[in-house]
Amino acid sequence: MTYKLGLTGSIGMGKSTTARLFAELGCEVWDADAAVHRMYAPGGAAVEPVSRLLPAAVQSGAVSRKCLKDLIAQDASVLKTLEQIVHPLVAQDREDFLASSVSDIVVLDIPLLFEGGNEEAMDAVVCVSISPEEQETRVMARGTMTIEQFRQIRAKQMPNEDKCARSNYVVVTDNLEHARAQVKEIVAEIRGKLGDA
């Protein structure tokens, strides 16, 4: 039996780093964002359906995230159309990953796990967490968005304390060694349960 561990957390909380820590311990990791990137790339599964329904979003044989952002800004209904294309493709990609996985624990890295109602499909959920001040500092340090853009994104996501309350495990990502120790504990606990089963 493969144990499905959902991994979630808001922007800037340290989810990618935490996913790598699970991978170091032999867990296979599926990344929802990476799946979407593959689908948007030339030859990706989303290119043809997006070019049919949102032709302005496809440039040089790939789906342009910038064009999508502009289209959504002009017309909010574009987001619904895009979700109807992408969500089933992402779900299929996840199923294909699970079918080919050989690890005892698979980590499904899904930023909007609770928002999308995906927690039901998981055996347990891990939420990464950090203080709102540290979160803002990290995101601003990337230099990829303004403070207004960051706050808009955060406002659309479920509040961090709600995600933590709904999760089986919380990993505080204040520093790498602390995060690594918490991930080791979680993996040891799950492997202990799997060994008893």
Rank of each mutant, 00 (worst) to 15 (best):
A41D: 11
V102F: 11
I85C: 00
V106L: 09
K80L: 13
D104K: 14
V107M: 02
A91F: 10
K66Q: 15
I105L: 15
A35Q: 04
L79F: 13
A56R: 05
V106R: 07
G61V: 07
R38P: 15
P88S: 06
A32S: 13
E83C: 01
K80P: 12
F97E: 14
G43A: 12
A35N: 07
Y40C: 04
I85R: 09
G44C: 03
V47L: 02
S101P: 12
I105V: 13
P55C: 00
H87V: 01
L79Y: 09
V107S: 04
G44T: 09
I105Q: 10
G61H: 03
R94Y: 04
A46H: 09
V47Q: 02
L89S: 14
P88L: 00
D104A: 01
S100V: 09
V78R: 03
V107K: 02
V63M: 08
L54F: 10
E83Q: 08
L89W: 07
V36P: 10
T81C: 01
D33W: 08
L54T: 01
S100D: 15
R94T: 13
S100W: 06
A62D: 05
R38V: 09
P49A: 00
G43E: 11
S101I: 08
V50C: 08
L98Q: 15
D75W: 09
D31K: 05
A91Q: 14
D104M: 06
Q84G: 14
D75K: 05
R94C: 14
S103K: 05
D104R: 12
M39V: 04
V47Y: 05
S103L: 04
A91K: 05
S103W: 03
A34T: 06
E95S: 12
A35C: 11
G61K: 04
V102M: 07
L68S: 06
Q92I: 07
H87T: 05
Q59P: 09
L79K: 12
H37T: 00
V107P: 15
A56S: 00
Q92G: 14
K69W: 07
S51F: 05
A45E: 15
